[in-house]
Write a protein that binds this DNA or RNA. Sequence first.
DNA 1: TTGTAGGCGTTATCAA
DNA 2: TTGATAACGCCTACAA
Lengths: 362, 362
Amino acid sequence: MNKSSRLAPASPLKLVRPRRGAGRVTLSDLAAVAGVSAITVSRFFQSPDKLAEATRLRIAELVEQTGYVPNLVAGGLASARGRIVGLVIPNVSGPIYARSITSFSETLAAAGYQLLLATSNFSMEKEEEIIRAFLGWSPAALVLNGPYHTPGTERLLTTAGMPIIETWDFKPDRPHIQIGFAHADVGRQAAEFLAPRGYRRVAFAQTPVEGDLWAGERHRAFAACLQQEYGLPTRLYAFDRMDPVAAGGEAMRALLRDGDIDALFCANDNVALGAIMAGHRAGIRMPQDCAVLGFGDFLFGASLYPSLTTIQPPAAIIGEIAAQRVLALLEGGAASEGSDAQAGAQQRHHQLSCALIERESV
Amino acid sequence: MNKSSRLAPASPLKLVRPRRGAGRVTLSDLAAVAGVSAITVSRFFQSPDKLAEATRLRIAELVEQTGYVPNLVAGGLASARGRIVGLVIPNVSGPIYARSITSFSETLAAAGYQLLLATSNFSMEKEEEIIRAFLGWSPAALVLNGPYHTPGTERLLTTAGMPIIETWDFKPDRPHIQIGFAHADVGRQAAEFLAPRGYRRVAFAQTPVEGDLWAGERHRAFAACLQQEYGLPTRLYAFDRMDPVAAGGEAMRALLRDGDIDALFCANDNVALGAIMAGHRAGIRMPQDCAVLGFGDFLFGASLYPSLTTIQPPAAIIGEIAAQRVLALLEGGAASEGSDAQAGAQQRHHQLSCALIERESV
DNA sequence: TTGTAGGCGTTATCAA
DNA sequence: TTGATAACGCCTACAA
């Protein structure tokens, strides 16, 4: 069948190449040289324990000598399940998702899965495009950020026929697996941390990143909790068209001009960094003149002056659970999203919480 | 041929599903409904202009109604060139590579390519594993960081038969396409910036990230240039087992203890951030008591106090050129790495340079 | 402008 | 423990 399965006369291991394909050594080439059938070589990779010792060794040697790498594209087509997982995130630049990606991809890689990655830049339309493109690769699973999608995306997802996981948020009524935390909880957490410490004139510094709906959720819950539980108003400082650190700086400058704020909850640690640096430049003492609370627990928080009190999302955990969840669903054979009766059902959703890291800035 | 190409009696668009495959609508299904052959539907996606207006419209409508997504796995197998590009980077957490990934993936996505991503964590062995796994997907191209690989990787690369691009470094004698800058140049650039400004007691703050060989290259060239051109010694502050920001803090504290350093060149901006914050904590004035020079031009540099003078690597440009280079090689049909006579030859290597962003800290 | 035939490299299925 | 055969869904080559 395979015309390339004869050997070049001179060197027994330099195999003749096929005409159209990638030009690589194939399973059949190896099989011909080893004197077995292709399926036997296939089994060498799939379930080596089902081969006779001698066969296994012979094939192992050949694989070593030829540098054969199985064609996963062909395998994916034949088995209808490629070992590839699609991950769509808002951006890679923010340290906030980076930690999730790292733990996610490392856990998956250990199980032999590869990561198809694309960034939506906080745009639901772009997310839909990406998902459509991903689906063409029949990924084993799809991991998205949060529950905000276009109707088109929702339609794609319901018919996708593979595990769909939404991360970094928690909305219990969703049809897909959820691994994350409620951003409203974070807002309340911040309010209930600041108010009892005597802060009465409180503000929120918004991130300038358009489409980051979560920052808005944190802000609303923060303000609502302060109002309802403590009768306190919240001022909002928001600036467009700049990076988050600069926006934090602007917020701090505006706040000092207004002169009546004693605690600033920042949309994230980058914003907080900008606020703190602007505070230094203005010569104020922190937290005495103005306390600063962050969100994200970025790398630099502990090294700032004052070191940053912040709310730490379970970034690495999210990535790890997502990966484990994917693997459990796939390896367990319960790959269909409708299989609620399976083992996954009781822990379909993972509601996590954020830790408040108390340092100097509050 | 395709047993699923008949319609279910009740609803004209609910297609019968095949037995073994992914269970999705296929090209043949669509073709049967449209009353054309499969290849015509294929052409609808490949070269729509070659179809008759009426045919195109009919197929377009069907695609819309069924939500058909072409199976890229099958397409990749048939055409031996999947629209997928492998990218291996040291890590996603550092903002330094993030910008490259973003511009790279966005340029590629616009051309319909997907990104297979994995992180080597600065380990050459892990890089080899990743590349081996990637090769199984027959990526259209492979983009790596720098020229440091295991012998096994080198072997894989020479026989891979696809464009290989090494980024973020520049070593002209490499067999693969290079897009980056010489880190030694950065070291010299720093030396020739500091020395003429009267800084005589100079130190380098090393990053604690093991395997980041480039920081070492910058340091060596920095020290060598200062020694040879200006007769100045360079002190090295290096700390292990901590994050880069903390290492910068330690460096600054050590430096202040030693009391005889007036300029600190940091392995990157995270290290510089730590140094500046430790400076604030110690109550020194910067740059008067100690100047700080960074590398990387991270987001926060402009917002620090003092704002950070730093060396800006062409991160986004690297990603963009890499993507364009990949596309040119692929679309131009010159996908083979040996095709030097092609258009790519004269700009095979791209040596870029870094800009020195002068702000307040030096 | 459209179609036919055959193959891409692997795995599922069934049989030995 | 191993093999023969037929998909998997699409694309290339060639033909009409």
